[in-house]
């Protein structure tokens, strides 16, 4: 008797910790899109994306840049009259697309997140220079050059660490992480 969960259910199930109304409470008022500082650059506005989730347009949702362009500023969430945690939904679709490897190849966001996560799991700390290879691979040489110039200016001002930091009780930390998500050998 169990039927396959719809895409909308799948997204809802990905929001275990954060709270708020389910996406089908959306009244399509557009407050989120009007609030969003990145809306101009999104393939679909936040309002449309919520509508598309509710219509179970899975492929179209996953195929747009909207959720990877979300800066997680929560302004939409605070203002939504239906109490939907739109920023949380954006996070949920990011997770969905990373786990299912359905993100678009031309987007940097997913690679960046994965590189960031690996750094934190290995050392307990984040370290910007380790992210540089991801950056170089995905942006053109001009952007990378600009970034490098910026980085060296910051380096001169003593604003970039030379060595990656790590926490002291790293083994305990790694075991803690493993209790939440089982990791592969080389993570």
């Amino acid at each position: 008797m169990t039927s396959k969960p719809t895409f909308r259910d799948e997204i809802a199930n990905l929001l275990y910790a954060s709270q708020g109304s389910p996406t089908n409470a959306c009244i399509q008022c557009g407050t989120c899109s009007g609030t969003c500082p990145v809306a101009n650059y999104m393939d679909q506005t936040p309002r449309r994306l919520i509508g598309m989730i509710n219509a179970n347009l899975k492929e179209d949702v996953l195929d747009c840049n909207t959720y990877w362009f979300c800066a997680s500023c929560y302004h939409c969430t605070v203002r939504c009259p239906a109490d939907i945690d739109i920023a949380g939904v954006m996070y949920a679709i990011k997770r969905y697309s990373i786990w299912n490897k359905t993100y678009r190849e031309d987007l940097v966001g997913p690679r960046f997140s994965e590189a960031f996560m690996k750094t934190v799991i290995r050392s307990g700390r984040s370290y910007e220079p380790l992210l540089a290879p991801t950056y170089m691979f995905h942006f053109g040489p001009k952007e990378f050059f600009n970034e490098a110039v910026n980085a060296s200016k910051m380096m001169l001002k003593g604003r970039i660490p030379v060595l990656p930091p790590r926490i002291k009780r790293l083994d305990n930390f790694k075991n803690m992480v493993k209790k939440i998500i089982p990791l592969g050998e080389n993570s």
Binding site: Y16, A17, K94, F116, S126
Partner: peptide, 14 residues
């Protein structure tokens, strides 16, 4: 330890 900034929530909420 690093609190994950915003990025960690892209991967796993728990």
């Amino acid at each position: 330890n690093c609190c994950g900034a915003t990025t960690y929530f892209h991967l796993d909420e728990i």
